[in-house]
Write a protein that binds this DNA or RNA. Structure first.
Lengths: 350, 350
DNA sequence: CCGGGGTGGTTAATCGATGTACCAGCGGGT
DNA sequence: ACCCGCTGGTACATCGATTAACCACCCCGG
C-alpha cells in the first residue's frame, strides 16, 4: 500500500492568498470582487485573475457572518404521512424556485416535518441560528399562523396562494383560484352532467375552500346542488375509499372532480374496477396537470395551475424581500382547464 | 398610522448577551453549551437557563467559520428535461435522508442542474465557498466522474447504487441490484410468458446496466432471448412511443418490463388504447413501487427497492464521513417483486 | 512653494463563537 | 509557612471576509 492513509482536505485558498498573489491588501481583493470601493481597472483585473488562478471563492460562512446574510432560502414541506400525491406538485415548485435562486447564488434548504407545530419550531430554530434569509410557505391555511410568526421573527417570507394585499407576508399565486374548477363545472354541464360530486382536500387548507366554493357557486348558478362533497387527506387510499362510497350512492354522481391528479387516476381505476366505463358512465376531472395524466387511459382532463411559474414568482418576491435587485415577478393568468378524454357525455352501454 | 414603518429584524441575541445574563464569560457559555472544557454543573445550568430564557442558539455562520463545518449536505438532482417519472423516487430518497439528518441538526441543500457538466461545476463552487460538508450522488453512471472529483475536492460523498468496496467514495444501496428484475422474469415465465421485452433507462446509468443484465441473464437461463430491448430517457412520452412500437412488432411481446412505475402506467394506458387487455393480452411490470401503483386499474405489479431506507443509510454513511458519531447504516435485503394485477397468464378473448 | 482635491489604495475593527493558554483560589501534605 | 495540584473559570487570538476611516501621492492653480 503506497497510500496508507488519505490526507485530509486540500486546504482551500483564502482571501489572504489571493491578496498576496495579486500584491495587494485583502481589502483591495474584497473591493475588486464586490465592485465596491475605489479600485483601478488594472488592479481589479489582476485580483480577479489571481482569484481564478487560485480557484478562490469567498467563504460563504465568513461572508454570512460579516454580512448577516446566508443566501439561503428555506422550503419546509409538511408531510403528515406518505403524501406522495402532492409530491409532483413540490417538484414543479422546486424547479420554479431554483430557476430564479441558483443564478443569483442562492441555495434552497429543504426540510420535511410532520406537522405545523414542528414546522413552526423549525422556523424558530433556523432563524435563531441565522441559517436562512427567507422562507417559502406552502399550503396556506385559513388563519395560518406562519405569516405572523415569520413576520415576528423578522424573516422575509412568501405564502403561496392567491395574491392578497392584506397578508402579513406577500402572497404569491395565480389570481382567481377558483377559475379552473368553475371552468370544469361549466364543461361538465355542457356535456350534460347534472349530478356532480366534489372530492376536496383537507378543510383547513385555503385552496380547498376557494376551490370548493367555486365548485358550489358554479353549480348553483346552474340551479343545481352538488350530489356530494367529501373532504380527504390527499392520499390515494382516500381517493379510492371516497370513490367507492360515492359510486354506491342510490343516485350516484355521473361526474367526479378531484383535488389532484394522482387521486383522479386512482378514482378512475376504482370506477373501472367497479365495472364502470370512463367517461361513458362516469366523468373524472383532476387538478395539477401532471405529465402522467396525458398518457393514462383514458387521458385525464385536469386543471393546469402553472406551479412552476408560481414558484419562480415566489422566488423573485422573496429575493426582493432579501434586498436583492430582481425584476418584479410577473404572474398573470389563472388556472385553466385542460380537456382530454376522462370527461364526456354519458353514453349508453355498448 | 401608529406604526408608519416596520422596524427591521428584532436583533437576535449573541453569546455575549447570554454570558452577561448568566454572569460569566463567553468562553464559559461556549463550554457549557458544547460540554467541552471544565464547567461546574451549577454554572452550566445557569448558562443553559439564560440561553433558553433569551432564546439563543449559536449562530450557524459563526460556528461554521470557526469550525469549518456547516452541517449541511448537498443533494444535486440532474434533470435534463421534465423527468417527472423519477421524481417520486427523489421524494422518497429525501424522506430517508431527512430522517437521519434533521435529528442531528444537519440541513439538506437541494440543487437542480441540467447536465453533468453543470453538476460538477456546482460541486466545485459549493466546496470553494465552503457551503457543504458532504454530498449525495444519485444516478450512478458507468465511469462516473463525480466520485473522483469529490474525493479530489476532499469532500465526503456517497454514491447511490449497489455497494462497492473499490469505489473512490462509499457506495450505498441494496445488494443484488438485479434480483428484483430476475424475480419478475421468473414470475412471468411461471405465468407462461415466452416473449418478453425490456424497456430500459438511459444506457449510461449503472443501474440500467445491472437490471438489463439481470433481465437477459434470467431469460437466458430459461433458454429464451428477449423479444426486444429498448433504451429510454425515463419520460412518459418515451414509454408511450416505445410501447406502441413494441406492440406493432410482427411477433409482439406478451410481457413488458419497465424501468419505473410512471412509465409502466403509461405503457398500460397505451396498450389499453390499442385495444389490448392487461393482463389478458399483455402483462406489465414496473419498478419503484409508487403508492399510485396500488390503485390504478389494473393494480401494478412492480419491484420495491426501499428507496427510503437506502436514503437513510446514505445519510448515516455521510454523517460518519463528516466525523459525526452515528450508528453504522444497516441495509440488508434486496429489491423484491410485488405481484399485483398487471401481470397474469394470457387469456382468450371473452 | 503651498494648499486643495482627486485617485487608489491600506489599516484596523468587526461579525459571533471557539479553544488554548493562563490564572485565582483553595485544601492538604510536609 | 510553602509549594503542589486541582477545580473552575477568564483573557485573547483566531476563523475569513467586509468596511469605515485614513493616508500617500500626484496634479494644479494661486
Amino acid at each position: 500500500m503506497n497510500k496508507p492513509l488519505e490526507g485530509r482536505t486540500a486546504v482551500r485558498p483564502t482571501i489572504k492568498a489571493v491578496a498576496a498573489a495579486a500584491g495587494v491588501s485583502t481589502a483591495a481583493v474584497s473591493q475588486a470582487v464586490n465592485g465596491t470601493g475605489r479600485i483601478s481597472e488594472a488592479t481589479r483585473r489582476r485580483v480577479l485573475d489571481a482569484a481564478t488562478e487560485l480557484g478562490w471563492s469567498p467563504s460563504a460562512s465568513a461572508t454570512a457572518l460579516r454580512r448577516a446574510r446566508t443566501r439561503t432560502i428555506a422550503l419546509v414541506v409538511r408531510r403528515p404521512t406518505d403524501v406522495l400525491g402532492s409530491d409532483p406538485h413540490f417538484s414543479e415548485l422546486i424547479t420554479g424556485l431554483e430557476g430564479e435562486l441558483a443564478p443569483r447564488g442562492y441555495g434552497l434548504l429543504l426540510h420535511l416535518v410532520a406537522d405545523m407545530a414542528q414546522e413552526n419550531a423549525l422556523y424558530e430554530r433556523l432563524v435563531a441560528e441565522g441559517r436562512i434569509d427567507g422562507a417559502v410557505l406552502t399550503d396556506a391555511r385559513a388563519d395560518d399562523p406562519r405569516p405572523a410568526l415569520l413576520r415576528g421573527l423578522g424573516l422575509p417570507a412568501v405564502l403561496l396562494g392567491a395574491p392578497d394585499a392584506a397578508s402579513p407576508v406577500p402572497r404569491v399565486g395565480l389570481g382567481q383560484q377558483g377559475a379552473g374548477i368553475r371552468e370544469a363545472v361549466v364543461h361538465l354541464l355542457e356535456l350534460g352532467h347534472r349530478r356532480m360530486a366534489y372530492i376536496a382536500g383537507p378543510a383547513e387548507l385555503l385552496h380547498t375552500r376557494l376551490r370548493l366554493h367555486a365548485f358550489e357557486e358554479a353549480l348553483a348558478e346552474a340551479g343545481l346542488p352538488p350530489v356530494a362533497v367529501r373532504h380527504s387527506d390527499f392520499t390515494e387510499q382516500a381517493a379510492v375509499d371516497v370513490t367507492e362510497k360515492l359510486l354506491a350512492l342510490p343516485d350516484r354522481p355521473t361526474a367526479l372532480v378531484f383535488p389532484n391528479d394522482s387521486m383522479a387516476v386512482c378514482g378512475i381505476g376504482t370506477a373501472q374496477r367497479a365495472g364502470l366505463r370512463v367517461p361513458g358512465d362516469l366523468s373524472v376531472v383532476g387538478y395539477d396537470n401532471l405529465s402522467l395524466g396525458r398518457w393514462v387511459h383514458p387521458r385525464l382532463t385536469t386543471v393546469d395551475q402553472q406551479v412552476q411559474r408560481v414558484g419562480a414568482a415566489a422566488a423573485r418576491t422573496l429575493l426582493a424581500g432579501c434586498g436583492e435587485d430582481v425584476p418584479p415577478p410577473e404572474l398573470d393568468g389563472r388556472p385553466r382547464l385542460v380537456v382530454r378524454e376522462s370527461t364526456g357525455p354519458l353514453t349508453p352501454p355498448a
